[in-house]
């Protein structure tokens, strides 16, 4: 358990540092005002995801924070258009 926590901490710190010290990525994103908005309106790297409730495909409530706990998760936004 300690080993897992230590690994997780390392991953988190490394990822946070990577995001904070990636000048190329920052330079690329700062050219697009939409991305500037995204950078500071979306949850920051290292922060807990927002406690919001959506729905699953059957229309049942899907509280993100509770339902995504326990696994690495990838969320990708999209629509039909």
């Amino acid at each position: 358990m300690h080993r897992f926590s230590a690994t997780m901490s390392t991953v988190l710190v490394a990822t946070t540092l990577l995001a904070a010290t990636d000048p190329a990525g920052y330079a690329q994103q700062r050219e697009r005002p939409d991305n500037e908005t995204f950078l500071h309106q979306s949850p920051r790297v290292g922060e807990l995801i927002p406690d919001v409730i959506g729905y699953d495909e059957q229309g049942e409530p899907f509280p993100l924070r509770a339902r995504l706990r326990g696994s690495y998760t990838v969320l990708v936004f999209g629509c039909l258009t």
């Binding site: 991953v11 988190l12 908005t37 979306s42 290292g46 807990l48 995504l68 696994s71 690495y72 936004f77």
Partner: peptide, 21 residues
């Protein structure tokens, strides 16, 4: 709540912490 982009992506750890966006 997630920044209003049409095709954004997030990698989240088992505790609900954003690792990558």
């Amino acid at each position: 709540a997630f920044g209003d982009r049409p095709n954004s992506e997030f990698l989240i750890d088992p505790e609900g912490i954003v690792l990558v966006k």
